[in-house]
Structures are given as C-alpha cells and as structure tokens.
Design a protein around this nucleic acid. Structure first.
Lengths: 145, 145
DNA sequence: CGGCATCCGAGTAGATACTG
DNA sequence: CAGTATCTACTCGGATGCCG
C-alpha cells in the first residue's frame, strides 16, 4: 500500500490552518475549555458514530430497531447517546403518544452534514486500514529484535 | 447559524456509500471485528489528535516538549500514545544515543495524510460548534418546560 | 414499547517515584 | 532526558429489573 506523497505545499498549508485555529489560544485553555474538543469528543464516540451511520442508511428507526442494528449496545448507553445526540442537534426525536408508545429517530440536516464528514473519514480509514495493520504487525516483530 | 441544506442527491449518495461500506458485513461482525473501527478508535482518541496536531505544527518535538505542548497529559499516557502512534505508522521516532539521550518525534507521510483529514474535521467542528452549543443550551431549557 | 434507576466489574487515567 | 513502575481513583459500560 503506497501512501500518497504529501507535498511541501500541503504541509505549509496545514501548518497555516493549525496556526489560525490554535495560534491565539494558550495551551492551557486549549485543553481545558476548547469547545471544539467538546464537539469532537461527542461526535467521535464509537457508539455515536454507529448510530449516525445507521440513521444515515435507514431514514428513521425506532429505539429497539436501533438497538438491534447497533449491535452490542445496551439500553442505558443507547438512550444516553440518543439524548446527547438529540441535544446537540444531530438527530430528531419524534414521539407518537399512542399505546404502546412509538418513538422515531432520524437525522437532522446538521446530522446529515456530519454524516458527510464521517463518511469521508471512514473512506480514508478504509483506504489505509491495511497500511495501518501492516505497520502494526511489523512493529510488533521489530520490537523483538 | 444556518446549516447548509443537504440535497436529496447527497442523501442518496451517502446511503449508497454506506451500503458499499457496510452492506456486505453482518451487524455482529461489524461491531466486533471491524478493522476500520480499530483504526478510528486509535485515531479519534483525544490525546492522539492533540499529539498529531502539535506535530503538524512543529515539525519535530522531543518527549518533554510534547508533554508541555499537550497540556495535561501524563508521562504514562503520552508514552503509551506515542508508542501506539508510532506502531500504527503515524509518526517516526528517532533516537540519538547521546548522553543525555535525545529522542525526536515527527509525523510520517501517513501521519500528514491523517492530519489533513483531522484538519478538515476540525474545521467542520469549528464551523458548527456555536450551532451545537446553542442547541445544547436550548435543549436544556426545553427539558424544564 | 421506550425508556430510567441501580448496582457492579473492568479498564483507564493520573500522580508520584524511580531508573538506564 | 526519556521514559517505566506502581498504586489509587474514578469513569464508563453492561446487566437487570421496574414503570408509564
């Protein structure tokens, strides 16, 4: 697996962007109060990602449907994540006060916007996963020598 | 803060990609053994992200320099993360057997490739963070009513 | 059906002290 | 200087049972 060469220009560009993003905050604040990190922490959670991806595939899902799709998640964690994701605006919860009660979850526009980014990142991960796994294996054997 | 409208075409496209990525694996395997998740889990770690971003800004850093920049990280966690990141091929560790010993860390090409993705995601997060925070605040007050 | 409350166990982070 | 070792503390996930 060949990694595309990164040009000098890209490196400089990355550096410039990083400077723009973080240059003005001091290091202490950045780690303690960075709101971006809040957003990222929530958004990069393992279960949240799976929930969003499933809702990207199936337009609407109910609680127990999600529980089946997102294999291995517990009631507690699923309900926590759903609440947080709803609270952050990623998804929309619609409750139908029938008996028995029915609740449907679907992505908001914002959720779809995040889904796009997620897909890009996942495609990147998929492209390079063999590369990473090979590196890992190689690294392990190298340690022994 | 306005969220760009997601077109129907984009939604369908996302769905198609998701299907291509996950359609062939069953749900159980996907959550238990998905190598993409391994890669993502490592790469989306809070400290790993900060380490990579700092190394994107400063071409090379030594252990204690990193410890100062990545504010709040402990020796233990820093050395763990560095080892993992090196093992996965994100960064390159160069040891100079002087006295006192000197070790330098820098991003590999693969690391730079990931940095690009990270920056994109962070830009997205920065764009929408106010939106998320507003949603959160609104959600909290809504709960009371 | 769609959750919430409770409890428990495991893993993980952090602080500190120490070493090649 | 660049880590390792050790111990503690705490969070977080999973299972279970209950309720509107």
């Amino acid at each position: 697996m060949e990694i595309e060469t990164i040009t000098e220009h890209q490196r400089l560009n990355a550096k410039k962007k990083l400077n723009k993003m973080f240059g003005h905050v001091n290091l202490k604040d950045m780690t303690l109060a960075c709101p971006i990190r809040d957003v990222m922490a929530m958004a990069s959670d393992k279960w949240s990602i799976l929930i969003i991806m499933h809702l990207g595939y199936y337009p609407i899902l109910r609680f127990n449907e999600l529980k089946k799709k997102v294999y291995g998640i517990s009631n507690k964690v699923l309900s926590e994540r759903l609440k947080q994701l709803e609270g952050d605006g990623y998804l929309i919860r619609t409750m139908y006060p029938e008996v028995p009660i029915r609740v449907e979850y679907g992505l908001s526009d914002f959720g779809h916007s995040y889904l796009q980014k997620l897909i890009e990142l996942t495609e990147w991960a998929q492209t390079y996963k063999d590369c990473v796994l090979a590196n890992r294996a190689q690294y392990k054997t190298k340690k022994r020598s």
